[in-house]
């Protein structure tokens, strides 16, 4: 998978590239508007992560340029501005998703994966890891061919953890993934704890006890 990260903040750009490289993505980076146009013109990517505030021009302009040029890449906007109009303009111009800073890398990764899945995997929508099978269109989890019934929230947690498999995902990232970017919702970490507890119990009942691990006080991880 090839990814282009267009973001002017070098430190943040490096974090994104690091995270995705560890997941076997091939990453290119651009720090300015011109650099972004140049790289997007010369190569073909599976996904472009695009910041709006860029030196040399707005990311929205770049987006417009790419879409007029019939570039098929999936594009995810990352922006510090959480204005509804900007979000709508971005999506109208052909962006596939919009994420507000500050975001968790696990969330960005889940968005990119979901986008790639939507765009490039026609038909089958089933994730399989040895005995574990997750049907994304039917939202059914089976382990050893035994179905495990999950609540909506438990399913979301599981999918998020599986997408970020073999990585520690912080409780905060899970909370934000499920409950959105609602203001002042810090109490939601407690819900994450109870959802994960239930999920763990259900997995254990079907014999997949050590699949889901708690990592000290930090968060959780699914080891596959």
């Amino acid at each position: 998978m090839k990814l282009l990260v267009i973001e002017d903040e070098a430190s943040l750009r490096r974090s994104i590239v690091d995270y995705f490289t560890q997941e076997d993505f091939l990453c290119e980076q651009a720090g300015t508007f011109q650099e972004g146009i140049q790289k997007a013109d010369n190569f073909q990517y599976d996904c472009i992560i695009l910041d709006i505030n860029l030196p040399g021009g707005s990311g929205l302009k770049l987006l417009d340029y790419l879409r007029k040029d019939k570039k098929p890449e999936g594009i995810i906007i990352i922006s510090a501005r959480d204005a509804v109009e900007e979000r709508i303009t971005g999506l109208d111009l052909g962006a596939d998703d919009y994420l507000t800073k500050p975001f968790h890398l696990s969330e960005l990764y889940a968005r990119v994966k979901a986008l790639i899945r939507r765009k490039y995997t026609a038909g089958s929508n089933i994730m399989e890891f040895e005995k574990l099978q997750l049907d994304l269109s039917l939202k059914i989890l089976t382990y050893n061919s035994l179905p495990i019934s999950l609540t909506k929230n438990e399913y979301e947690v599981l999918l998020f953890l599986i997408t970020n498999k073999n990585r520690v995902v912080s409780r905060q990232a899970i909370a934000e993934h499920i409950y959105g970017e609602q203001a002042d919702n810090l109490a939601s970490f407690d819900f994450v704890y109870s959802h994960v507890k239930n999920l763990k119990r259900k997995l254990k009942e079907k014999g997949a006890g050590d699949l889901l691990q708690a990592v000290y006080g930090l968060g959780y991880k699914i080891v596959i």
Binding site: S15, Y19, F103, L105, S170
Partner: peptide, 12 residues
Amino acid sequence: AIIRSKLDLLIN
């Protein structure tokens, strides 16, 4: 955003 991303890398 930078701190958050670095923490996400650090915990891994």
